[in-house]
Simulated scan of single mutants.
Amino acid sequence: RQWARLETTAITLYTYECRMIPGLLQTEAYARTLFTNQLPLLDDEQIEAQWVARAERQRLLRERPNTAFAFILEEGLFLRRTGGVEVTRGLIDHVLGFAELRNVELQVMPQVQETHAGLDGPMRLLETPENTWFAYCEGQRGGLLIPDLKEISVLQRRYARMRAQALNFENSVGLLQRMRGEL
């Protein structure tokens, strides 16, 4: 929740994800698939509340055009076909739609990659209007907000390396378009 509050005023938000499409980019069908399969199980009311909160957060991408959003997503997230072919097709279309926004940068980390700076898992980096940086890392049962500048520096270097290792924007969009066409 503290991270979500920071997101609402961030001027920069970098996300690397290797487990699931980040909430800011999820479709309703994809998110509901995740919520339905969550353990412990959620009831319908909880699933609805989770989706409403997620959809509200997504408004940031369009309503904060001066915020720089950058996403590095593993190719495998789309190959997994979470929710099935139709959900994946809609998800790719949705992500490609966000990639058309000037304030959104999208890169795909190829499935085959000999060197990879993100093997320690997903991460998010955020810059506040006061130019203070925070990091956030999630695990199985919770997340960790990281205010320590030395730790943030390490994560920033890893993210920078991953940006160099991932496909550039044009190649990332081209890959997603090809993947969508193959569904």
Results as ranks from 00 to 15, higher is better:
A160F: 03
Q58Y: 09
I146N: 03
L25W: 10
L155N: 02
W3E: 11
A99Y: 10
E45C: 02
Q2F: 01
H116A: 08
R64V: 01
N66E: 15
G84W: 08
F69E: 10
L25I: 05
G118H: 04
R19F: 05
L61Y: 03
A135H: 10
F78Y: 06
I92C: 07
R158Q: 15
A164Q: 13
Q38I: 00
E75Q: 15
I92S: 08
M162L: 15
Y136K: 00
L77W: 05
E45R: 13
E170G: 03
E105G: 11
G83N: 04
M162V: 03
R102G: 14
Q50N: 13
H116P: 00
Q111A: 13
R81G: 01
M179P: 00
L77Y: 06
S172Y: 10
L167Y: 11
T33C: 11
Q111I: 06
E114Q: 10
W51S: 02
L149T: 14
Q38G: 01
N66H: 14
L145M: 13
P65K: 02
L41D: 09
E28T: 12
F169A: 12
R57L: 13
P110N: 07
L41R: 15
N37W: 11
E170P: 01
E182L: 10
I72P: 02
V104T: 07
I47H: 08
T67H: 02
S172A: 07
G84N: 10
L126F: 09
V104P: 10
C18R: 09
L73V: 03
